[in-house]
Design a protein around this nucleic acid. Structure first.
Length: 267
DNA sequence: ATGTCGCTCTCTGAGCGA
């Protein structure tokens, strides 16, 4: 089962590229971020004609997340990250698909830091940590994936010294991410490539992709029940090299559904 | 500080967020 996370940076501008990708790779599950489209502007029919079911949480201008599935619809469990009823930003969606709990997220960027946007990022991460603990505690097989806007370590940035004051790499951000990870999540890409440089995002400016001046901020975290099913992982850089690309590349894992551990007493 | 995109609005450029 191929599970992909892909920040499209505007579903309107990226529809052709997305359809091309679906045709080329035929992923089973795709978590999308940064739709930048209101709920009613999501191109549901074009995606259906491409052979995918979709659930999505749109928002005018900014944010927006979706989950696409190929072999049947996903059952939506949660829309919006719990913990703050006043938070109206569309950054989280959760669904069950073929026994797998798929959580797609678009974590706040948080720049400039310090400031109110950084405070919002850290507060959002606290809510994510609470959600992560609850998910792990069920024993369910969970893939928690998306654009985390977190550079976990210096290995994950071209010239990390340039990111020290950035909200994606500040100590508070990395510490919160480490607290999430300490719950028992497996960073799928890093586990497959322990020492290698792996980037998922390259700025549009200064020919960043051509120079491979990237960062790794799109992550797929696996709960203990799905970690043993991991068979492969990677970044589809070819998609970033196409015409009119997103600044992110699709990032993927291959899992063996037969190796997923289902809890004996599902709640 | 800069660079380049995408989206929205008052509208064919400017502001904002990333």
């Amino acid at each position: 089962m191929l599970v992909v996370t892909y920040n499209v940076n505007g579903i309107g501008a990226r529809l052709d590229a997305l359809l091309d990708y679906l045709e080329q790779r035929k992923p089973d599950v795709v978590c999308l971020q940064e739709l930048k489209a209101p709920q009613e502007k999501f191109p549901e029919s074009a995606i259906r004609e491409a052979g995918y079911h979709a659930i999505w949480h749109g928002q005018k201008s900014w944010n927006g997340v979706a989950i696409l599935t190929r072999d049947g619809p996903a059952q939506e469990l949660q829309r919006g990250l719990p913990g703050d009823p006043a938070d109206e930003q569309s950054r989280y969606i959760e669904a069950v698909y073929q026994g797998l709990l798929v959580c797609g997220l678009y974590l706040p960027n948080g720049n400039p830091a310090p400031g109110p946007k950084f405070d919002y990022k850290l507060a959002w991460m606290e809510r994510l940590i609470a959600r992560g603990a609850a998910l792990i505690e069920t024993g369910a097989p969970v893939v928690l994936c998306g654009d985390f806007n977190v550079i976990p370590t210096g290995l994950d940035a071209y010239k990390p010294e340039r990111w020290v004051d950035d909200a994606l790499f500040r100590p508070e951000t990395r510490a919160a991410f480490e607290r999430l990870m300490s719950q028992g999540w497996l960073d799928a890409l890093r586990s497959m490539y322990p020492d290698q440089v792996v980037y998922t995002f390259w700025d549009y400016f200064r020919n960043a992709f051509g120079r491979d001046a990237g960062i790794r901020i799109d992550h797929l975290l696996l709960s203990p029940a799905v970690a043993p099913a991991l068979r492969g992982a990677g970044v589809d850089r070819f998609q970033r090299a196409k015409e009119k690309p997103s600044d992110h590349a699709p990032t993927w894992i291959e899992i063996d559904p037969g190796a997923i551990v289902q809890p004996k007493h599902p709640r």
